[in-house]
Amino acid sequence: MTRYVIGPDVALRLARDEAVIPDEHQILAPTLLRSQLLSLLYQAVRCGETTKKDAARQLDHVRGLRIRLLGDRVLQSTAWKVADRLGWSDTYAAEYIALTQLQADAFVTLDAELAQAVQGLVTTAPIEALFSSNAV
């Protein structure tokens, strides 16, 4: 089983595409994902990119994806160290990187700058890896 950490950008794409993740993959994310996804969908409704009904459907889709959400003390401590090492102004993205370091095989993001910034700290994978039978 390959374990992937996904960011809110990937969760949103999975929701919009109504994607199904194969059983041979386990999806992980910090508990922070729920709030970030809710905020992204709220913003999309506010600026007219989607309807409230579609946003609710997308949120329900992500809730059904079997994402294991984690946020313990060890994760937070590791996120602090990651953010400090990279000189980041907050720890939001660092939680995803910390979780990848602690429990996953790869981090999946659509953000090329973030993927570049964490090169050497974690393995990154394209979103297509989530649908493939090939492990990272």
Results as ranks from 00 to 15, higher is better:
10 V>E: 01
135 A>C: 12
30 P>V: 02
8 P>E: 07
121 L>T: 10
113 E>K: 15
75 L>M: 04
89 S>E: 15
114 L>M: 12
88 W>S: 01
36 Q>T: 08
88 W>Y: 08
86 L>G: 02
66 R>Q: 14
50 T>H: 05
65 L>F: 03
106 A>F: 10
36 Q>F: 07
115 A>S: 10
1 M>L: 07
122 V>G: 01
73 R>H: 08
58 Q>Y: 15
37 L>T: 03
108 V>S: 05
17 D>H: 07
118 V>Q: 09
25 H>V: 12
34 R>W: 15
52 K>F: 14
114 L>R: 13
129 A>I: 07
18 E>M: 14
24 E>N: 15
117 A>K: 15
50 T>W: 05
52 K>N: 07
33 L>F: 03
105 D>Q: 09
10 V>Q: 01
59 L>K: 14
62 V>Q: 01
95 E>T: 02
110 L>F: 06
129 A>K: 13
70 L>M: 06
60 D>I: 15
19 A>L: 04
70 L>A: 05
34 R>M: 12
76 Q>Y: 11
80 W>T: 10
39 S>I: 02
29 A>P: 09
14 L>Q: 04
97 I>R: 03
73 R>T: 11
89 S>W: 11
55 A>V: 10
98 A>N: 07
11 A>W: 00
24 E>P: 04
102 L>M: 11
8 P>F: 06
46 R>S: 10
115 A>Q: 12
48 G>Y: 07
2 T>S: 11
78 T>L: 05
11 A>K: 04
12 L>A: 08
106 A>C: 09
80 W>S: 11
87 G>H: 04
116 Q>Y: 14
22 P>N: 00
11 A>N: 03
7 G>N: 12
50 T>S: 05
22 P>L: 00
70 L>Y: 05
3 R>N: 01
73 R>W: 11
129 A>S: 15
99 L>R: 05
5 V>W: 00
13 R>N: 05
120 G>T: 12
87 G>W: 05
11 A>H: 02
136 V>N: 14
28 L>N: 00
11 A>T: 07
2 T>K: 02
21 I>S: 00
96 Y>W: 08
109 T>D: 01
21 I>P: 00
113 E>L: 15
110 L>A: 13
81 K>S: 03
116 Q>N: 14
121 L>K: 10
111 D>M: 12
61 H>I: 08
132 S>M: 13
109 T>R: 01
73 R>I: 07
7 G>A: 08
85 R>K: 07
